[in-house]
Write a protein that binds this DNA or RNA. Structure first.
Lengths: 245, 245
DNA sequence: CGATTAATTGAAATGGTTCAAGTTATGTGG
DNA sequence: CCACATAACTTGAACCATTTCAATTAATCG
C-alpha cells in the first residue's frame, strides 16, 4: 500500500479534490522511516522542518506540567498528520511520540508549502484537518470537564474505533480493535490515576460492557459503551461537506 | 475605530500580509449588528452562512452534555472570529453565545471564500488562527486534566489578560481588566461547581493573589497568579513566525 | 421596592487519589 | 528455553479535593 493512501482517502472523503490535486499529493517527496515504540517525533520547543504522516502504528500528543504530570492530548492513527501545525506555527507547544513501533513518512515543510501555494483545494483540505483536530480537542474538553471517569473512558474508546473505521482499519461494526495502550497511558489521557482506571476497567469488564487485554480493545456491548460515553460522532464531521454549504 | 482593526492587527502581528491582502480584508462587505447579552450567534447543529467577528464585547463557546451540563470551551474577545470553522466544517458542533452586549460584524461565507481563494496569504493567516485556537484547546485540556481547581482558575485569568493585551485592550502590565464573568460561568469553564469556585476565589482573595468583583478581574499579585496557574504563554504562539522557519 | 440573579455559607457525601504492597505479564540475555 | 529483570496490572485502606444539597445573604434591575 502506498504510504499516503490513508491520508488521501481521508482528504477525499471530506473535500472535493481534483485529479491534479491528488497527483500533486502523491508526487510529494517522502522520507520514510521505521521507528521504535516510544520514539519522540517532535518535542515541545522543537522547530521541525518536516511534517510526519503516520503510515503504520500509533502515536500520541502530550504535554507536561511543571510538576511533571503528563496529559495525553490525543491519540493518532495511520493516515493522520499529527504535527501539521509545525508547518504554520513553527515551534512545537507539545510532544509527539509514537506508541507502537511505527512507519512514518516525512514531508519537508518546503515541499508542503509549495503544494499548498499551488493547490488551493489541498490547502483547504488540510485546513479542514486542523479544524477537525480542534473539534476533537473540544470534545476532549467536554470529556474532562463534565463527564465521569467511566464516561470518559467509554467515550475515548468509541472515538478511537470510529476513527479507525473511517480509514478502513476496522470494519465499521467490528466490536474489537488492536490498540497498544497501557492503563497508565489511558490514565494520562483521561486525567485519572492508574489505580482508578484499573477499577473502572474492572467494573466495565464485570458488567460485560468492554474490556482491554493485551492491546486488544473489545467493546463487548457497543450500545452500552456508546451510551456510557454519551458518544455522538457529529463532532468528527465525517460527511459534513457532502451537503451543500 | 474600523470594525476589523483588531482582527487585522492580530493577523499582521503573526503573518506577513501584503498591502493588497490588507486592502482585500478591509474591503470585505460586513453586516454589523449590535446584540444583547446572552445572544446565541450560532448553535450546535446550525449551518451558518456567515462568520462573525467580535468588534466589541465578549462571547463564549460551549457544549452541552446529554445530562444537561454545560462546558464552556473558550472565551472570545474583540478581534476574534470564533466561528471561523463554520466556513469549512459547515455544521456547528457547539454553541457560540455572547456574554455581554456586543457588536458583531458578519462576513458572508461566499465573500470570505472568495477572499481566501484569491489571497493565499490571508488563507494562511486564517489557517494559523485555527491552529492557535487548537493550541488553546490543548492547554485547556492540560488545565482540566492535571491541574487543581485553583491552578485552573489562575491559568484562565492570566490567559485572558494576555489575550486582551495582545489586541491592545489592556496595557501589557496592567493588573486588572474588565471581563463580565459570573462565578457560575467560571465554574462551567473550569469543570468545577459554583460552590467550589466561590471558595477558591475567596481563598485567592484572602491571600491577596487575585479578585473578581463586578466584572473587574484584579490580578493583585501577578507573579503569584502566573505561578499558581503555571502559566507559560508559549502555546499562544504570539511571535512565532517572526523567526525564520 | 419587589423580584430575580449572583454570591456565600455549612454540613454531609463521594468520586477519585495516594500510598504501599503484591501479582501477573513481558521481554531479554545467557 | 529458562531465569531474571522490568513493566504492567491489581488490591486494600486511608485520605482529600471537590460535589451536592439546602439555605441565606447580597446585588442588580425594571
Amino acid at each position: 500500500m502506498p504510504h499516503l493512501a490513508l491520508l488521501i482517502r481521508r482528504l477525499r472523503s471530506a473535500t472535493q479534490l481534483g485529479e491534479d490535486d491528488i497527483a500533486a499529493v502523491r508526487a510529494l517527496p517522502l522520507q520514510v522511516k521505521a521507528v521504535e515504540p516510544e520514539t519522540p517525533i517532535a518535542l515541545e520547543g522543537d522547530r521541525p522542518h518536516a511534517c510526519c504522516i503516520i503510515v503504520n502504528g500509533f502515536a500520541y500528543r502530550s504535554k507536561l506540567t511543571e510538576s511533571g504530570k503528563r496529559q495525553i492530548l490525543s491519540f493518532h492513527i495511520p493516515g493522520d498528520i499529527p504535527d501539521l501545525q509545525s508547518l504554520v506555527l513553527k515551534t512545537m507547544d507539545h510532544d509527539l511520540v509514537t506508541i507502537s513501533a511505527a512507519t512514518l513518512a516525512f514531508i519537508d515543510h518546503a515541499d508542503l508549502s509549495r503544494l499548498i501555494d499551488t493547490h488551493a483545494a489541498v490547502a483547504r483540505a488540510l485546513w479542514r484537518e486542523t479544524m477537525v483536530d480542534a473539534a476533537m480537542f473540544r470534545e476532549r474538553i467536554l470529556n474532562l470537564g463534565v463527564r465521569s471517569a467511566s464516561a470518559r473512558m467509554a467515550h475515548l474508546l468509541v472515538e478511537l474505533r470510529q476513527r479507525l473505521a473511517e480509514v478502513g482499519l476496522v470494519e465499521i461494526d467490528d466490536k474489537e480493535y488492536r490498540f497498544p495502550i497501557t492503563q497508565s497511558a489511558l490514565a494520562d489521557a483521561l486525567g485519572l490515576s492508574t489505580v482508578h482506571v484499573n477499577r473502572v476497567l474492572q467494573e466495565f469488564r464485570s458488567q460485560r460492557v468492554l474490556d482491554i487485554r493485551k492491546n486488544l480493545v473489545k467493546l463487548i456491548d457497543v450500545e452500552k459503551v456508546v451510551a456510557a460515553g454519551e458518544f455522538d460522532p457529529a463532532y468528527l464531521h465525517l460527511i459534513d461537506n457532502s451537503r451543500p454549504g
